[in-house]
């Protein structure tokens, strides 16, 4: 009963947040200068102010923002199609791609899904292994080496690591590639490919490794630091001392007794990392020209494609809120102290 009430309240807060945010985005995208730009891009660039006003009136943009928002959401009837909005599954038309927004979003989300999947496959095991290794013996040489490495990756935003990785591995004039090419180790001019646009047709190690590593690098350091702290904390707990006095081996203590309790924090953090990964994904997709969700968002925002931008914002905000809710649930499920109550 109490759990149900908590869940309902959470769900209510999530819905309220989503509504507030979508209204905010809607209002920002429908500010007069944005609409004027839309009119000029749809009509002609040399429209006079009167022509812009009449265009906006014909397209129905001169009405108050709350009404437009209600129509977009699908709560108010729209001229021509009854009630059709986001709630009914009608996301509108993209002006850049000249396709329905839902179609563009579906395609780009699928592409980003692959990127995210590989990032997770690389990031999660690496981060957990590094964190456990470092936290197992706090203050040891391994611990200090891993700490410095994780501080370094946490100080490297994606646009820096991406640039450095491309210069090292995918440049025909600098880094490793010229050396390898001259000695005959590789056929092509570069070791890895500097763009991932080819990965849209088929993912290979050579066109996907750099974008995946670039996104994963930042998160790996962060999750490893959290794991390390949780592991170091677990190793000082009474149950670990008991296990040690019982005569359990070091590997058994680490893997059975400490690890399970140390995993609560990292799992929540990994889920909360998803929104931050989204950020990294936007940067990496722009840098490597991979036509996924992030690239689409940048195109929509850069070209004032209002309905596509609204769609992107809705997806992004939903994703962030869903992961927040999920990590909350995971924390409750994993933490025995909260579960028992």
């Amino acid at each position: 009963m109490r759990v149900a009430a908590i869940l309902l309240r959470r769900l209510g807060a999530l819905l309220a947040t989503a509504l507030c945010l979508s209204l905010l985005v809607f209002w920002l995208t429908h500010l007069p200068p944005n609409l004027e730009k839309l009119a000029k891009s749809q009509g002609s660039a040399r429209m006079s102010d009167a022509e812009v006003a009449s265009w906006l009136e014909r397209s129905g943009f001169d009405r108050p923002v709350p009404v437009l928002y209600g129509e977009w959401l699908g709560l108010l009837p729209k001229a021509g199609c009854g009630r059709c909005g986001v709630v009914q599954g009608d996301w509108g038309q993209s002006t850049v791609f000249r396709q329905p927004v839902a179609e563009v979003l579906g395609r780009s989300l699928a592409a980003t899904g692959w990127l995210m999947l590989w990032v997770m496959v690389v990031m999660v095991p690496t981060a957990l292994a590094l964190g456990v290794l470092a936290g197992m013996r706090e203050g040891s040489r391994t611990d200090r080496a891993i700490s410095v490495a994780t501080i370094l990756t946490a100080a490297t935003p994606e646009y820096v690591s991406g640039v450095v990785l491309v210069a090292l591995f995918a440049s025909a004039t600098a880094g490793l590639s010229p050396l390898l090419h001259e000695t005959g180790w590789i056929e092509g001019r570069t070791l890895f490919q500097g763009t991932a646009s080819g990965a849209m047709n088929g993912i290979t190690f050579w066109n996907f490794a750099l974008p995946v590593v670039t996104v994963a690098l930042y998160g790996t350091g962060y999750v490893a630091r959290i794991t390390r702290a949780a592991m170091a904390d677990a190793m000082t707990q009474p149950y670990v001392r008991t296990a040690r006095l019982k005569g359990a081996s070091q590997s058994r203590i680490v893997l059975v007794h400490a690890l399970r309790n140390a995993l609560v924090a990292p799992v929540t953090v990994i889920l909360l990392q998803l929104p931050w990964l989204l950020n990294g994904v936007v940067i990496v997709e722009t840098l490597f020209a991979y036509k996924g969700f992030g690239w689409t968002l940048v195109q929509a925002a850069g070209n004032n494609d209002i309905e596509l931008l609204l769609g992107c914002a809705t997806v992004a905000v939903t994703l962030v809120l869903a992961t927040q809710g999920l990590s909350d649930l995971a924390y409750r499920a994993l933490n025995p102290r909260l579960r028992a109550r």
Binding site: L28, A301, V320
Partner: peptide, 27 residues
């Protein structure tokens, strides 16, 4: 806290694209 979470749920880059455009600068 609700207000803070509202801003935190916003993807940073989207916020930048909405706030730091030449059009917004006119308002």
């Amino acid at each position: 806290s609700f207000l803070a979470n509202l801003v935190l749920a916003f993807p940073v880059i989207l916020l930048f694209y909405l706030l730091v455009t030449p059009e917004i600068r006119q308002t």
